[in-house]
Amino acid sequence: MKEFNFNRCPVCNGELSAVRLICNDCKSEYSVSKPFSKYDFLSYEQKEFLECFLKNKGNIKTVGEELNISYPTVKRRLNNLLDALDLNTSKEDEPMKFDKNKFGNINYKSNVPSEIIRRKLYENNGVVTISLLDGKPCTIFASSDGKTFVSDKLNQKTVPFSYSVFDVIVDLLLKSNNYSAPKGNGHGKEDKVGYGKCTDDTVMGAIAINYFKKSYGESTYDPVFVLSAMLDWAGIASNNRGYISLTADYLSKCYL
């Protein structure tokens, strides 16, 4: 027998309402006029997820552990729940349009970092999901103009980056001892450009000064955790805890 959908009338597809309540003990009945709530239409899985999510105060890691599901599955179920409740105002999961014809010429021989990553995104039809250092997924989207990219981990895809940012990072690594440099960061109160963990010998400092064009003492946005993972994905640099270093394979090629 086909499962009955309480959301719509099977005859005319009209909206249904509850008109009678009955006591399970004495069987007394009461007339009511009450439309169904959108919560009434959630599946058992969605209700279970919602209860777990609320109980754990939105801690995705704890939800995943309790339900024995992966981080991406937790995110997917959360988005499905938000969609079911008509609460999903985020466009994060909508696929970005990618037009290869507008991407521009691809240099298949160049070993310039910006060209390597641009080429790899092109070959993946403009979108790829990579792993961050903590194992969490990170999706990269190439703009069809072939000049910039965005990520779901960088201000929810509102901050576009030019591929030239990778040339800045690799230039620092090529000039550093053992072709390795600390990542640094721009999060702390003391980590202003040129100070703390944002000095010009760190990846964060190099990005702030040579890419963002920040002056000493200014605050800066920190995208290092994503950019380091992208360099690792491209085989250009190894993403380690606290530092990155150029791979032997990339060093054997370097710039043409």
Rank of each mutant, 00 (worst) to 15 (best):
I236T: 03
L256I: 14
S17K: 14
K27L: 10
S245T: 15
N125F: 03
V165Y: 07
K253L: 14
S164C: 09
V19E: 11
L78Y: 13
D152T: 04
G188M: 11
I116H: 06
G205Q: 04
V32P: 03
D200H: 10
G217E: 01
L78N: 14
S70C: 11
V63C: 00
S70I: 13
K75R: 14
I117S: 06
L67E: 09
I140R: 01
L54F: 08
Y216F: 12
S245P: 02
V74Y: 07
N105A: 14
F41G: 07
S164D: 15
P113N: 00
K27W: 00
K189M: 10
Y250P: 06
I236P: 02
N177E: 12
K213D: 10
L132H: 01
V32M: 02
K27S: 10
G194K: 04
D201K: 07
P95Y: 01
I207P: 00
K57T: 08
N125S: 11
N111T: 15
D25S: 13
K253P: 08
S37W: 00
A248R: 12
V32F: 00
E115W: 08
K213E: 11
L121A: 04
Y122M: 00
E65P: 05
V112K: 15
S180E: 14
T89C: 10
D152H: 05
Y122K: 04
E48A: 05
T73Y: 02
D145C: 08
V32T: 09
N239E: 06
S164G: 13
L154P: 01
T220V: 15
P182C: 04
C52K: 03
Y44S: 11
L85R: 06
T73A: 13
M96H: 03
K197W: 12
G196M: 08
T62I: 15
I117A: 08
F41V: 04
L78S: 09
D83Y: 11
G235E: 05
C138N: 07
E115T: 09
E45K: 08
I116C: 09
K97A: 10
Y179A: 05
N107Q: 14
Y216H: 12
I117T: 09
D145I: 01
S176E: 05
N13M: 13
R241D: 15
G58D: 07
S131F: 09
S252H: 14
S28F: 00
S114N: 12
Y163H: 09
P113T: 00
R118L: 00
N178M: 07
Y250A: 11
P113K: 00
E115G: 08
D167E: 09
K55I: 05
S164N: 15
I69K: 12
A206T: 05
S219N: 13
K38A: 11
N13G: 13
R118M: 05
I236L: 03
L174K: 06
Y211W: 03
Y39H: 13
E15N: 12
L82K: 15
Y195S: 12
